[in-house]
Amino acid sequence: MTMKKAELTLGPVLFNWAPEVWRDFYFRIADEAPIETVVLGEVVCSKRTPFFAEQIPSVVERLQAAGKQVVLASPILATTERERDGVRELVSSAGDFLIEANDMGCVAQLGGRPHWIGPFVNVYNEATLAWLARRGAVSVSLAGELTEPALSALAAQATLLGCELEVQVFGRLPLAISVRCYHARAHGLHKDNCRYICNEDPDGLTVDTLDGEEFLSVNGLQTLSHTYVGLTHEIATLQGMGIRRLRLSPHTCDMVAVAALFRSLADGVLGAAEARAKVLEMVAPAKLSNGFFHDREGVIDTAAL
């Protein structure tokens, strides 16, 4: 079996970055990062959307000019009239752009047209994957809590369906979404009057246990791991299964360097141990984790045991 070349996907920026920082981040990705696909869009909080709206055209243009595929992400949770309108508008105005659907409402609106499925739609088994593929899913980014045997079974099914699979190999892992804003709550504010306080923590607000142990990260309505997923030793296995797309989730560390590192790792130019050491250095003082892949607690880093 000839292995298809691995492709890197940059997931959407999950955090509330200043608009010009956000724009410059993508400009640099366009110019320097060895990444095939960039998923764009505010998926966490609809209140943030207006900030990025005016930057999107220039970012898209720059990315496309650099030969990157641009995919537009739908929000994780769309409950209000305004949020639903947002999804409708996204679907109707996407034109030639592929949409990454992050909830079933978006999947419904896409009808049968080709699209991506994002990691916030539950795809746990072959039957679900097949059902989505029949409705036009051409690439599915899987949830972080899937284990190696599950990924392997899904990959076998994906091959039969001609559907690509993707797994997040870098970045804090999204663990939960709510309509309650925990950033506002941590500051004693209400969501309706949040002062966009989540912009203070561009990689998330650290949540410690009462013992002072770093545990989770809060990003507005979203809760993420405090550890950064770092599937350095697992990439060869993923590739062996036929999983071709590797997702990097953006952080304030040098994402061009992260992309270059995973590119070399996927191409077999860089060893896993060396890659891991470098990634660890980049995310410090945070730690790495790969527990879910190994059917353990998600927080665990088996390489450090």
Partner: peptide, 21 residues
């Protein structure tokens, strides 16, 4: 649940065992 049900991996992050799986 304060979180959207069926879309939460907090439990498995700490214990390896989740509502969904």
């Amino acid at each position: 649940c304060p979180m959207a049900e069926g879309r939460c991996s907090l439990s498995s992050y700490a214990t390896g065992r989740s509502p969904n799986r």
